[in-house]
Design a protein around this nucleic acid. Structure first.
Lengths: 217, 217
DNA sequence: TTCATATCGATATTTTTTTATCGATATAAT
DNA sequence: ATTATATCGATAAAAAAATATCGATATGAA
């Protein structure tokens, strides 16, 4: 077991699960009852063996030879596996344009994330509500975290405030930070950090595009 | 060479490059002139051998034994490697809250992305400007793509319009789609797609948190 | 100057991941 | 009822990635 895995399940598997899930949602909408590893592999652009191995970590039942997996059951199992049914409460720090978009995004609740409040330093926005959630001054961060026993924070401040706020969050009891700022956070190993790195994503898209344009000649 | 690599460089390496870059920016700000693979590995939570191998794909010069790599030169080489100096023009489709946040984000230009215009169906927003970029009606998508020879589109519509818009974009000449919608897009293999999958990211953060809380007992 | 040491770059080893293979079995066709 | 076939689940083989090792060398200390 490396650091990049949780129990017997590797990080690459975790990354693929939501892809399967999205594909399965479309299939369910179309009324499809069963799906084979071959069909699922095709829509997610992967290999059937990978799909079968991945699914084996999530499914409670079994797939049927010649038929495949039951779409509905598979969805439930993957949702459970990914923790969508186990709601995590979070606070959001930095309610600028991106922060507002994140607070306003109702899809989060579907995968087990409930933003209970936003925090900002800007008096023009403090006191307002987005999606029913209050925006409070940053001075109240510590007490809210403590009172509600919050463990997850979404960081969407400007780059220059990111490290300071991250340190404050950790000191107040936060154990997982979803970092939407372009800052490189330095934190103890005991804190989970997931960088939402748009630069990285775009670099990969650019590489893929380059390859595609090269092939088109 | 698998499908998940470009030339000799694997996707995992590409993913790590922006991490190194972010760490290097902080080091440069602190006035540090040289960095060793050991130091860099520490801040990005990885192994020195991985760092050395990764950097070898990007650097033009060489690292010095006992000293390490020159921070400034390394930054330039990685930026070049990731294509930050080679600007790609893109359009953005769907100027809701998230779309506005993306259009307003000035950091994109730093890594070679220039959003030339936004498109929406909402008359209340059409004609306005964000960050100096006009918002046009979706009816003009095809002509703008054609006139400016745009190859990259950022998709930030609602879920239900995503597939329709993606098809329109591809038909109009787009070859790379950065998908910020929760929709599962089905497109030809010749189109590069990068899903900005918040569900996936959050699932990983949740797993890490679970592991951390377990260790804390 | 000589010696000790940190670090590179190359390569070897180990581990992980992906891919292929194959016997068992559910379904449909004959 | 028999046969053909698609698919599963397990496992074996191949490929890729991560990690460790090691000779060479730049630097600073003795």
């Amino acid at each position: 077991m490396t650091e990049d895995s949780f129990g017997p399940v590797s990080l690459v598997t975790y990354n693929r699960m939501p892809l399967y899930l999205k594909a399965l949602y479309s299939m369910r909408e179309k009324g499809e009852k069963f799906v084979s590893s071959v069909a699922l592999a095709e829509v997610v652009r992967d290999n059937p063996s990978v799909v079968k191995k991945d699914l084996s970590y999530a499914i409670r039942g079994v797939g049927k030879p010649k038929v495949g997996y039951e779409v509905g059951a598979l969805i439930e199992d993957i949702e459970e596996f990914l923790g969508y049914n186990n709601t995590k409460e979070a606070i959001l720090v930095g309610v600028g344009r991106l922060g507002q978009a994140l607070m306003g995004y109702e899809g989060f609740s579907k995968y087990g994330l409930n933003i209970v409040a936003g925090f900002d330093v800007d008096d023009n926005i403090i006191g307002k509500k987005i999606n029913g959630k209050e925006i409070l001054p940053t001075g109240k961060i510590a007490s809210v975290i403590d009172k509600l026993k919050i463990k997850v924070a979404i960081l969407a401040t400007s780059k220059d405030k990111a490290q300071f706020m991250a340190d404050l969050l950790v000191k107040s009891g936060i154990r997982a930070i979803w970092n939407f700022t372009p800052a490189h956070l330095i934190l103890s190993e005991e804190i989970a950090v997931k960088n939402e790195d748009l630069a990285a994503s775009f670099a990969i898209l650019s590489m893929q595009l380059k390859e595609i344009l090269r092939k088109e000649k």
